[in-house]
Simulated scan of single mutants.
Amino acid sequence: MTWVNRFRRLAPVGRIVQELVRFDLQLMENPEISGVEYQQGALQGYEVREYLLEKWGRTCAYCGAKHVPLEVEHIQPRSKGGSDRVSNLTIACHSCNQAKGNGDIRDFLSGQPDVLSRLLRQAKSPLNDAAAVNSTRWALFNALKATGVPVTTGTGGQTKFNRLRLNLPKAHWLDAACVGDVESLDIVTSKPLLILAKGHGTRRMCGTNKYGFPTRHRSRKQIHNGFQTGDIVTATVTAGKKIGSYVGRVLCRASGSFDMTTASGRVTGINHKYCQPIHRKDGYAYA
């Protein structure tokens, strides 16, 4: 919500699209909800396949093979009364899928009772993370609606479908642009601004070792030589062993010898006199 409000101050935001649920399980389980067009379309196929890959851990349900092409498989064959519901679907490698064919699952796994028992039990259990819309997502949705800006929602399968249809590479920022109903996209950059929430420090009064025992006192003073930990600075070092230019978040010390977290790693022992502020601490890191 912090960033929604910031963007609204910078530009006239006319619509917000949120990926509310990862998988549209209602539509997958109840074909009558939205009609044949959705259920037999390409989007429904992406929803089902992604759900099954997550549910079965991206491994063959029969032999446990990983990192091989996996196919959607009916546990109870359709020719013997099996349905297309996700509770009757699993994923299998090509060899196992062909070997089982349209035979009964109990006959196919008659010599592996443990595998049969696990498979039938897992088939009936929902993927909890995908089946439940948790309170955090609904809280965000309600907070977005309270802004007064029109809010629409999309699903995880729909996002992937849009990204592949538009022939875009896998990346979080492109996934975000593909949420909801997307006809086309104009990509104007290959280097998006990456924003990471870092918090505002700690309230601990002392530093501890890995076992939790106190080892050092932590000063209440946060600002040292005009800087505080979390500021983004540029430092051009002209003398000593650290000669060079650096940009990153600074970790301040009362001694005036700072550490910097840069894109290439952490640099220690940067004197404060070489530092110039770019962006004051606001709880976020940028790259």
Rank of each mutant, 00 (worst) to 15 (best):
S83T: 12
L120W: 14
Y286E: 07
Y46V: 05
A139C: 03
N134W: 02
G64H: 09
F161K: 04
S219R: 07
G14R: 14
R253Y: 14
L27E: 09
L140N: 00
G226F: 04
R266W: 00
L116M: 04
I223P: 00
T159N: 13
K124Y: 06
L10E: 10
R49F: 04
A92I: 09
I195C: 06
V133Q: 05
C60E: 11
N5H: 14
A143H: 06
C275G: 02
E29A: 08
Q44E: 13
P169Q: 05
Q112L: 02
C60R: 13
T208M: 00
Q122M: 14
R118Q: 10
Y51G: 06
K160Q: 11
P192E: 12
P12T: 09
Q158G: 15
V72S: 08
T90L: 06
F141R: 02
N271Q: 05
I91W: 01
G156H: 05
R280I: 01
R8S: 15
L166W: 08
T136N: 03
V149F: 02
I243R: 10
A42Q: 14
H279S: 07
D84A: 07
K273Y: 15
L194Q: 10
D282G: 09
S110W: 06
G57T: 07
V250I: 09
V86S: 07
A131H: 15
C206E: 14
V21Y: 00
N271P: 00
V237W: 03
V237P: 02
K55P: 01
G154V: 14
S257A: 13
P12V: 06
F227P: 11
I16G: 01
T262N: 03
Y286W: 08
L140C: 01
F23Y: 02
A132I: 12
S125H: 12
Q122L: 15
T262Y: 01
E73Q: 04
G45H: 07
T189D: 10
I278P: 00
F258G: 01
P113L: 04
N88E: 06
A61N: 02
N88Y: 00
R121H: 13
Y38S: 02
A99I: 07
E37F: 08
A146P: 03
V72N: 02
T147A: 07
L168T: 05
V149S: 03
L116Y: 05
K66H: 01
I33C: 03
G64K: 08
H172T: 09
G180C: 06
P150W: 02
S255G: 05
N5A: 07
S34Y: 10
A239G: 09
Q222R: 15
Q158R: 12
A139I: 01
V182A: 01
A92Y: 06
P12R: 11
T202G: 12
H94Y: 03
